[in-house]
Write a protein that binds this DNA or RNA. Structure first.
Length: 225
DNA sequence: GACCAGGCACATC
DNA sequence: GATGTGCATGGT
């Protein structure tokens, strides 16, 4: 018997197709993006990344040597720039101390150890850590975000009180542990969230996860708002 | 002008 | 352990 989550995945993939995540050219760029996108629109993150690229600063060594104030200036467009500059610096300190500033060396370590280490860096929480593990280091771990929680709650798969680890556990337990699947699934949920899960969105009627009861369309979001 | 976007740390109860 | 708040930009 297939779990609901497998069916959701198939529906989402059929509807949207592959999402080609993470949109970045190097693992290090993924890490920078993961920190910059915290509670921020991706378009604004792109502006910051572009700034860094134009000035030739998008490498671990360059960023490590760049003064905090100057880094903050470059990443202004993605918001919370003072905090995020400090978070990038905190990551870089860890990155050079433990892995000589090499994502290749880093990906040689085990998933559990890496997750524990990342979570100990100030400014890296569960979603950022898991995004780095999955999208920069190719580790089989599921990324949970605000959209993920909405979708699971709306469809009665998780309780409104469920925390991050609990939500992640539902995916890990009920899906085959495949990097490609985890990669695509999270990206598809974000796509779904952007297009359908906004309040008072008239397009909710055509959400690919709506179900039919008899002749009636049942919207997944009905039970949430 | 309000509300939102691919969170996190910290204070307080 | 739950709940509230600061952090800041750019789009709708």
């Amino acid at each position: 018997m297939k779990h609901k989550l497998s069916l959701f995945y198939e529906k989402l993939y059929r509807h949207f197709g592959p999402q080609h995540w993470w949109p970045a050219q190097t693992p290090f760029e993924v890490i920078v993006g993961a920190i910059l996108t915290q509670n921020t629109n991706w378009r604004n993150v792109e502006r910051s990344i572009e700034n860094l690229k134009i000035r030739g600063l998008l490498s671990a060594k360059k960023l490590y040597r760049l003064p905090l104030k100057e880094l903050a200036l470059e990443i202004r467009p993605s918001g919370y720039f003072n905090i995020k500059a400090a978070r990038l610096k905190a990551f870089l300190e860890f990155f050079f101390r433990e892995y000589a500033g090499s994502t290749k060396k880093m990906s040689g370590a085990g998933t559990r150890k890496l997750r524990r280490q990342l979570l100990s860096v100030k400014g890296i929480g569960p979603e950022t850590a898991d995004s780095i593990l999955l999208y920069a280091l190719n580790k089989p771990i599921f990324v949970v975000d605000a959209y993920t929680k909405r979708v699971l709650c709306r469809h009665g798969i998780a309780a409104a009180t469920a925390g991050y680890d609990q939500l992640q556990g539902i995916f890990i337990k009920n899906l085959p542990r495949r990097i490609k699947l985890f990669n695509e699934y999270h990206a598809l949920i974000v796509r779904l969230g952007k297009e359908f899960c906004l309040k008072n969105n008239p397009r909710c009627d055509t959400c690919p996860l709506n179900t039919k009861k008899g002749n009636r369309e049942v919207k997944g979001c009905e039970s949430y708002f």
